[in-house]
Design a protein around this nucleic acid. Structure first.
Lengths: 134, 134
DNA sequence: CTGTATCCTCTTGGATACTG
DNA sequence: CAGTATCCAAGAGGATACAG
């Protein structure tokens, strides 16, 4: 064999931790939800305004998922029009630094040159439903 | 209205930067690929060993995607069994801190209590193909 | 060794309509 | 307001076979 194999350069803990932690942030919206809860509780409708392109169904699904994983808590409010508040748990707050790092990189990339090369899986072509008569 | 709306708490730049940057890391394997290239070039087969559960097709697709986005470079080697090396571009290297933060959080979560609650979309139940007669 | 092609499944996400 | 239900589309990913 012409090349000698350079193998097992990483002891594997980082890989698993990365995959597992990324699994917590799966999907297009989970990080955004956590991000918008970083300063305190928000209500369902508020999150829909914070994250304009997300549909009610997906936001609902993400919130439930993140709740199941113990990253956030749901609190029913006994108001006249019934409302709900979502807030991060301590576990959920642990993810803030990671998301923050991603945000920083994202900002830096646009700042430097960074085309962020036409990456709009389709989150640009939608825009119709989410912006409710705004 | 009983509650006053607390809206536009975020000026929106972070949200877009988050989404855009997360789009660069889409999928289960893109972050792992970048992570395993952080110390230098790796060949296709080496990456398959580094990231044991990834299939050839997906690894190929991710590599091409990341190449298209300018995050890594592919270099054909004129060896007797033809081989290829992948290495991060400067742009790709920009993402290291973000991934690093995710890894750190992942490690901390397992360290503290963190069940990382049975989150194995299916990356645990596979294991058959990727481990080639290991 | 380095991929690609096909086929198939599961997940994510959107649109719309509907309930409490 | 806060969701849920249904239907549908696109993407991610795996298995297998095959090509350069």
């Amino acid at each position: 064999m012409a090349l000698k194999m350079r193998k097992s350069r990483v002891a594997r803990p980082p890989m698993c931790a990365l995959t597992q932690c990324m699994a917590l942030l799966r999907g297009a919206w989970a990080p955004n939800v956590i991000w918008h809860l970083r300063d305190g509780a928000r209500r369902f409708g508020e999150l829909r305004v914070d994250i304009p392109l997300v549909s009610a169904k997906v936001l609902s699904a993400r919130l439930r998922e993140l709740e199941d994983r113990g990253l956030l808590e749901r609190r029913l409010l006994a108001t006249s029009p019934p409302s709900a508040e979502y807030s991060l748990t301590d576990l959920g707050r642990e993810l803030i630094p990671a998301i923050d790092a991603v945000v920083k990189v994202g900002l830096k990339l646009r700042g430097m040159d960074a085309e962020l090369p036409t990456l709009r899986p389709r989150w640009n072509a939608v825009h119709r439903t989410a912006r409710r008569a705004g």
